[in-house]
Computed example of a mutant assay.
Amino acid sequence: MPGRSPYDIPDHVQSALTPLSKQLVVNRRGSTVWDVQTPGGRLAVKLGYPTPTHAWTALAPAREATILRQLIAQEVLFGDWQEGTWSAQPWREGEALFDLWEPGRHPTKPATPNLDQALSCAVALADLHAAGWTHGDVQPNHFVIGPAGSFLIDLGLARGGEVPEVYDFRYRGCLVHYEAPEISRSILETGTAVPTQEADVYALGASLFISATGWRHVPYPDDADRKDQRQAIVDRPHRKITVPGALGKLIEHMMSREPADRPTSAEVRQELKNVR
């Protein structure tokens, strides 16, 4: 029904994919995602639609699809539908970083984070950067860790290559819980920002930190609005890094307030290879 979600896969998309089964897996913030089994394999089918505050979410599935076509060999389909755009991409089997590290956040039985899994996340980000792209929305739920390693998903905000103008939109930040101070500052001052690989590294550090501890990188009330969250990130230092050992020291380095002081994703990858 127009204007309401979750949305079912439109008839013309189902005709193109001929699904054998489907399961709703995500329905939030302008995006409905289905896990779809087809004769050709398992797919993630995304439907984008505008929200009262964000029109760009309607374009994100098609924008991501044009990026994936430049990065992976597998077939990626996309097009328009009544409320926005849709895409169908290979399903990535695995579990999100935040969920994998949940047992280690137990208050009475904390566990040392798995360095192999941290390394797999760094490898995924470094590979993307080496290909000339910036992700722009690094967060723990976008690292899917499975038997084949980590996949860095949800590239709808990525920058680095050609994107058709009809599907493009300006970058207005990401999930604030992982936003670097310079990105938050730019959003507050101008309404937009330029995503950078340095900000991706900060976000990976914040992702490792929250996955290991359960704490956001900067404290602010749970009910604070986005503007106040960003102001807190600009005004306050990040929380004390309590992750033990070499990983904690590396996270501290990754979350340096000055972008030039942070290691590159390739350096993060190498450091984790050295200490795991």
Rank of each mutant, 00 (worst) to 15 (best):
F143V: 07
E189L: 14
K240H: 09
I183Q: 14
S211L: 10
R28I: 12
K240T: 13
A130K: 15
M255Y: 00
I183E: 14
A126T: 04
S21E: 07
R276H: 04
V234R: 09
R185G: 06
G173E: 03
E189K: 14
L155A: 05
A58Q: 03
L128C: 02
P221M: 14
D235K: 11
T192A: 07
V268Q: 07
R105S: 02
Y7D: 06
P263Q: 08
A73S: 15
P244I: 08
A55W: 07
D200E: 08
E64I: 05
V201R: 14
L208H: 06
V234P: 04
L175K: 14
Y220N: 04
V45F: 05
K109H: 10
Y220H: 12
D99C: 06
E102K: 15
Q82L: 08
I67C: 03
L204Y: 05
V218F: 02
G161L: 11
P140C: 07
W91F: 10
A232N: 10
A193L: 04
D200V: 08
S15K: 15
A55L: 11
D222G: 08
Q197N: 09
I241P: 00
G245P: 06
L17G: 03
S15G: 04
F78H: 15
N27W: 02
D99Q: 13
W81G: 12
A111F: 00
V163M: 02
L157W: 05
D11C: 05
A206V: 10
T66M: 00
L152E: 11
D228F: 01
Y7S: 09
P52V: 02
L155V: 06
R105Y: 01
P219N: 11
V76W: 13
Q82P: 00
T108N: 01
G146A: 11
P107V: 10
S211W: 06
L247R: 06
L128M: 11
S265A: 15
P113I: 13
Q89L: 08
Q70C: 08
G160P: 09
C174H: 09
W91Q: 10
Y171T: 12
R216E: 11
P90L: 11
R4D: 01
M1I: 02
P52Y: 05
A246T: 12
E102G: 06
K273W: 02
T264A: 01
E198M: 04
P2L: 14
D223G: 00
A73H: 12
L115W: 05
L125H: 09
E182C: 01
D168P: 06
I183F: 01
V201Y: 04
V275N: 07
D127C: 06
L20F: 00
D116I: 11
T196G: 01
V268T: 10
R269G: 01
Q82C: 00
P39I: 13
A260D: 15
E162F: 00
R236N: 10
A58R: 13
A180N: 05
H238I: 14
W34H: 15
